[in-house]
Design a protein around this nucleic acid. Sequence first.
DNA 1: AGTTTGTCTCTTATGTACAAAAAACTTTTC
DNA 2: GAAAAGTTTTTTGTACATAAGAGACAAACT
Lengths: 295, 295
Amino acid sequence: MKTDTLFKRAYNDALELISRLRQGDILPSENALAAGLRVSRTTVRKVIATLDEQGIVSGAGRHRIISRLVGPASRFPDAETVPAAVQGEKQCMEWMLRGDARAGSLINELELARQFGVATTVIREFLNSFQRFGLIERRPSGGWVLQGFTMSFALELFEIREMFELRSAHAFVDLPGTSPLWEQLQALRREHVALLEEVDARFHDFSDLDSRFHRLVNAAAPNRFIDGFYDIITLIFHYHYQWNKQNERERNEVALREHITYIDALLSRYPSVIELACRTHLASARTTLVRSISN
Amino acid sequence: MKTDTLFKRAYNDALELISRLRQGDILPSENALAAGLRVSRTTVRKVIATLDEQGIVSGAGRHRIISRLVGPASRFPDAETVPAAVQGEKQCMEWMLRGDARAGSLINELELARQFGVATTVIREFLNSFQRFGLIERRPSGGWVLQGFTMSFALELFEIREMFELRSAHAFVDLPGTSPLWEQLQALRREHVALLEEVDARFHDFSDLDSRFHRLVNAAAPNRFIDGFYDIITLIFHYHYQWNKQNERERNEVALREHITYIDALLSRYPSVIELACRTHLASARTTLVRSISN
DNA sequence: AGTTTGTCTCTTATGTACAAAAAACTTTTC
DNA sequence: GAAAAGTTTTTTGTACATAAGAGACAAACT
């Protein structure tokens, strides 16, 4: 059976939205709510029906009003608002990248499914879509082998990353001066500077900025294969660094400064300057990743 | 229910194997058969049981003899020896690359499943594993959008291919003279020359040679992401050219000659010569692909 | 006339069932 | 005592069922 996590998230969001209104206010139309909660009207109607049952709204048709304001206690627990696939994915990722499993070992679908409390279908679908990240491989006779997040994986990943990044950085120079990307790059530079000023408190925000910056560089000459590759990078960095907290603040501060240098290089439009800044940043990113694996 | 296509294939193979023996011969051991038919002993036992039922072998335990030789009529039809997943995959590929479907249109799992006579699970699994080829994309709200085999797809594909191929070609030069790859390259060159001599009759064999050559070049500096990318190339070429027969012989002959030049360049170990040969070949391969799309 | 809601249909997500195939273990035979 | 055959246990591939959610159309309201 399909899970109703989407409904539960929408319900929580609806409570949030209502809390900004007053008692007696008219409930927004179903279409408006659907747009606001980013779900279909079908789901909105289910949410409204539940709110009605709970006595939070009353009336029918287009005469619904908010009859009672409620606190956050009546929300569904956050854990129930994630679809099974996402939940399974998260746990699988953790299981793989944390190194609970050794490279070369076989993956047992049923065992994983039981361990993570989802159906085998979910695990299988995850494994299938996860194949492209190169961390697992299908055996000819069926089943999956774990390749694992090894040193060679990291090195091969970075080899490609360097090729792609240099290519995109050089393509950026060829953009016409009127391209909106230049303005976006300026904006991103300001965000970097702002983050650097409060780096002690906000260094966690770097990860997102990093991903956005590299994707912006790639936007200069879009290529679906490069975009797809950046999904891998983003995913690895997201999960891997989540569990490698050593020197996180320092690491991020260094990377922030390198990014700013790199952005300035792009803005200067001098190919040789860009190449230097790009290579410097990639080399230090590689060192960081490699070091975190060898520990 | 799981299909017994594997058993049927093994049974056919077993008949083949038996036809090379004489009546009254002792049947090879289960383990030997398992190795020969490349299936598990469980499946071999099922094959033997069926052969027994059919009166083709008789006796029990280790005293089984071949009691009757049969013609090819008693084989299972070939169509029944392909697993559902492979069958679905083939038909899906055809449906996509032949352009029966327009880019941007939604993919209906149930409809495809009915059309190809398989369960929706099979279609879904195919779509999942096929995602990495960049021809389809998942919508946030569920479902799939067809991106299609368009011109921009081909151009983006070739951009990456050029980067990878040049990188590998240059890495090849750095191989020590003792590397077995040099000998393999020589062997491949001989195969090219042999094929060129009979190109009129055997031009179909080029496709396989092409794939092997490019994979050999990549073997100089293995990288799993590049290998994965070559799966896409191989797949596209395999299916796409299957339906674009125009000038096939001429196309392949040109490519064969380019390959030989390219191989000689590699053997010469002069980077500039290699780069030229490599670029020439890639440019002509790109032109060929692009032309086949615009028609 | 254009929203808004009510109703119905179609599609997907996910759990479950079950046969096929693999793998592990046990007994037999030479 | 080692290889072969017999037996049991696991695991995977595929079908199918069903609720959730999206979307289309019709009716009702302002």
